[in-house]
Amino acid sequence: MLDVKGGLKPTNNMLVDEQVAMFLHILAHHVKNRVVQFYFGRSGETISRYFNIVLMAMMRLAEELFKKPEPIHEDSIDEKWKWFKNCLGALDGTHVKVKVPMKDKARYRNRKGEITTNVLGVCSPDAQFIYVLAGWEGSAADGRVLRDAINRRNGNLKVPQGQYYLVDAGYTNCEGFLAPYRGQRYHLSEWRDGRHPVNARECFNLRHASAHNVIERCFGMLKLRWAILRSPSFYPVRTHCRIVIACCLLHNLIRQQGSDPLEDGFEEMDMDISNTDAPPILTIEPSNAWGNFHETLANEMFADFMRHTDSR
């Protein structure tokens, strides 16, 4: 794929196999340049040059490897997703540590005091990335990043009319983005020890959390597999943002090729577009129609929950 579609070619000094092996070794182990020099017997300049060559080749595979969103069908029997008809997947943000010049640190400092970039990730119900936007400063609010994602001229996040993504309470509940109820139990850890919903909003939040958790598992597997995402690298922010996207593309490739060995440990983890002629959603504003849809869905969920409870 990197050869045919990414334009990666062997040179007189290095085969494609070695270029890719070196690239993957750096992503997976986040080792310093001199360590890679020792393992591969190459100069520091050669390693740096070929790392960037392979990285750019990976960027050319984005259209090939990013998952095409598919809405949940009316006849879905998936216990986590069957209530969310026409839902395309889940959306959330995560922070990745970066190194920036001293003058930029204030902008990149997040609420925890860490220097990070705020990464927006969107994934499908089968835990493959659909869209990733990296580069926003760590101080940027999640809602601001989402607004940028749907309004970009090139490579924007498309949400067709009548379809939507699940988002957490940090985002506005509006057309195209279905959020949980605030002020109610939400995180899966709050439902352990045999607790059950006592009203429609709690029932909605429980089922929303169960489905939305797929994006948290994606982020968890991503950072567990690629050590370069767990601590600041020595690459410039622009390069590090490309590295984030490359890791997401590799995540998808692994899942497309078969069973992911990391998945079992994340199955119950609770961590803190189809074609259409209709125009995509371009605003993030609450509306009465969307609020009514939210409330109706919650009531249907709770009525179903009570029917199953009474039948036991």
Results as ranks from 00 to 15, higher is better:
L2D: 06
N12A: 14
N12P: 02
N12C: 10
V20A: 04
H25C: 15
H29P: 04
Y39P: 03
F51Y: 15
L55I: 02
M56P: 00
M58Y: 11
M58Q: 13
R60I: 09
A62M: 14
E63I: 11
E63W: 07
F66Y: 12
P71V: 11
D75P: 00
W81I: 09
W81H: 03
W83Q: 03
N86C: 10
N86I: 04
L91Q: 11
D92Y: 10
K97M: 13
V100T: 00
V100A: 02
K103G: 05
D104L: 10
A106V: 13
R107N: 08
N110E: 01
I115W: 04
A127F: 15
Q128V: 10
I130Y: 11
A134F: 11
G135S: 07
E137I: 11
D142M: 00
R144V: 02
V145T: 00
R147Q: 10
D148T: 09
I150T: 01
V159P: 12
Q161P: 01
G162D: 14
E175V: 05
A179D: 00
G183H: 09
S189V: 07
R192L: 15
R192Y: 05
D193S: 13
G194P: 09
L206N: 08
A209K: 00
S210A: 13
S210P: 07
F219S: 01
K223F: 07
L229Y: 00
F234D: 14
V237L: 11
R242K: 13
A246I: 02
C247H: 10
C248L: 05
Q257P: 01
G258D: 05
E263L: 15
D272P: 15
T276E: 08
T283A: 06
T283W: 04
S287H: 05
T296K: 09
E300L: 12
T309W: 13
R312H: 14
